[in-house]
C-alpha cells in the first residue's frame, strides 16, 4: 500500500480538529447579538458550511477542466471527492439554516430565493454523484462527469446573487468587503470559523481522494483477467453429431 492510500491520520486531521474546536469555542465566547439572541451563533456554523459548499463545487469545476485538459485520472478523483464533500456541506448548511430560520422567522422553510436555489444546487450535484455511480468505466465516467462538473457551476451564479436580485427574507451576503456591518469580535469569530472549516475541508478532501484511489484500484483489480482456473485442462468430448458417430 502506497503512502497516498494509507489510512492513518496526518497533521492536517489534527489541525482540523483543533481549529474547529478553537473556532467554535471562540464563537461561543463571542458577544451576544442582541437583535437575534443566541440563535445567531448558528452564524458561525452556517456561513462556513455554505462557504465550503461553494469552495468544494468550485474545486470540482477546476478539477473537471484540469481532467479534460490533461486526461489524468487524479483530477477526476479530486473532482468527485470535492463534489461529495460539497453535497454533505450543502445539506448541513440547509439544515442549519432551517434551524436558524425556525428561531428567527418561526418557520423551518420559507420560499426565500436563497433557500430555494441552494436546495436546487444540492440536486445538481446529487445528479453529478448519481452519474458517477452509473458509469463503470473510469475513463468514461471521468470525462462525462467532468462536463457536468463544469456546467454545474452555472448554478452557483443565481445562488450567490439571489439575495441581491430578490430582496427576500434571507440577509444579503455576509462578506461585503466595502460594507462590513459587524462588530470586530463577531467578525473575527466568523472569519476564524471559516478558516477552521476550510482546514476540515482540506482534511476530508485528502481522505476522500485516498478512498477514490482505493476504489479505482479495487475496480481495476476486479476487472483484470484472472489466471488459469481449475478445470481449464478438461476439454469437452468431441462428438461428431453430423455423422452419427462418436
Amino acid at each position: 500500500m502506497s503512502d497516498a492510500t494509507r489510512s492513518r491520520l496526518g497533521p492536517l486531521d489534527y489541525a482540523a480538529v483543533v481549529a474547529v474546536l478553537a473556532a467554535l469555542g471562540y464563537a461561543l465566547a463571542s458577544p451576544r447579538i442582541e437583535s437575534q439572541g443566541d440563535a445567531a451563533r448558528m452564524l458561525f456554523v452556517h456561513v462556513p458550511t455554505i462557504w465550503l459548499a461553494y469552495l468544494a463545487f468550485a474545486v470540482t469545476f477546476i478539477a473537471s477542466i484540469a481532467y479534460l485538459v490533461t486526461n489524468k485520472l487524479r483530477w477526476d478523483h479530486v473532482a468527485g471527492a470535492s463534489a461529495e464533500i460539497g453535497v454533505v456541506f450543502t445539506t448541513v448548511a440547509i439544515i442549519g439554516g432551517m434551524v436558524w430560520g425556525k428561531a428567527t422567522w418561526n418557520v423551518y422553510w420559507t420560499w426565500d430565493a436563497r433557500l430555494t436555489l441552494t436546495a436546487i444546487m444540492l440536486f445538481v450535484y446529487v445528479g453529478y454523484l448519481a452519474l458517477r455511480r452509473v458509469i463503470a468505466d473510469p475513463e468514461v465516467r471521468a470525462r462525462r462527469s467532468a462536463v457536468l462538473g463544469i456546467i454545474g457551476l452555472l448554478q452557483l451564479i443565481p445562488v450567490h446573487f439571489s439575495v441581491t436580485w430578490w430582496r427576500t427574507l434571507h440577509q444579503t451576503n455576509t462578506f461585503r468587503p466595502r460594507d462590513i456591518q459587524m462588530d470586530g469580535p463577531i467578525l473575527a469569530a466568523l472569519l476564524g470559523s471559516v478558516a477552521a472549516f476550510t482546514v476540515v475541508y482540506a482534511a476530508l478532501l485528502r481522505h476522500r481522494i485516498r478512498l477514490e484511489k482505493l476504489e479505482h484500484a479495487a475496480r481495476a483489480a476486479a476487472a483484470a483477467p484472472v489466471g488459469p482456473v481449475a478445470g481449464d485442462a478438461v476439454t469437452a468430448p468431441n462428438v461428431n453429431r453430423a455423422g452419427g458417430q462418436p
Binding site: V124, G127, A130, L131, L148, Q155
Partner: peptide, 12 residues
C-alpha cells in the same frame, strides 16, 4: 438520469 441532470440546471 437525464431529468435529474437537466431540470436543476435549467433553473436560470
Amino acid at each position: 438520469l437525464v431529468p435529474l441532470l437537466v431540470t436543476p440546471l435549467a433553473i436560470p
